[in-house]
């Protein structure tokens, strides 16, 4: 049986790389990612309420502030730093879908996961997914437009 009681070396698969880290049970995944310099996942509330800490685990969005780092062993973790050339990133830029940028990595990862699991997402599904994240700077209209525009593009590209 797997047992950890103090700092120990484990491997975490982060952005396609197997990273060896020395961690202890009390550390959340958010703590560990940030200690590795992957500061794109942010501390906004450490209570699962704001979504700034969102990463993907096995392609689903997870709030890393409420996940023990050890829970992520053996799973595929995707952080914003690993999101290379996602069409959502450019869409956010061209739609002005962020201002201070603090919530942006979390939103982008939710969008990325949505496009994997619900590429045909209707308005209700888009709303349901985006409701996991708080943006204090925008009014959500730009984020919604960016997401809808890109999902449509992705679908059209697939059809073509």
């Amino acid at each position: 049986m797997i047992e950890y009681n103090d700092y120990q070396k484990v491997y975490l698969n982060i952005n396609g790389e197997n990273r060896s880290v020395i961690i202890k049970p009390a550390q959340t995944l958010l703590d560990v990612l940030r200690s590795l310099g992957l500061t794109g996942a942010k501390k906004g509330c450490e209570n699962g309420d704001c979504g700034s800490c969102t990463v993907l685990i096995n392609s689903y969005p997870i709030k890393s502030c409420l996940t023990l780092a050890l829970e992520a062993v053996g799973k595929q973790i995707l952080t914003i730093e690993g999101l290379k050339n996602s069409p959502f990133q450019q869409a956010f830029v061209s739609h002005n879908a962020f201002q201070c940028g603090y919530c942006t990595p979390g939103f982008l990862l939710v969008c990325h996961s949505l496009s994997i699991h619900y590429p045909n997402a209707d308005d209700q599904t888009i709303a349901h997914w985006l409701q996991s994240n708080i943006c204090r700077c925008t009014c959500y209209q730009e984020i919604t437009n960016a997401v809808k525009c890109k999902l449509k593009d992705i679908l059209q590209t697939k059809k073509a």
């Binding site: 940030r34 500061t39 794109g40 730093e81 990133q89 956010f92 830029v93 940028g101 942006t104």
Partner: peptide, 20 residues
């Protein structure tokens, strides 16, 4: 035009105080 800090922010590279 695009915001000058756009690329850093969408790539998660913008550094805030607690990131330091």
């Amino acid at each position: 035009s695009d915001r000058i800090d756009a690329q850093d922010k969408v790539k998660g590279l913008a550094k805030y105080t607690d990131d330091i």
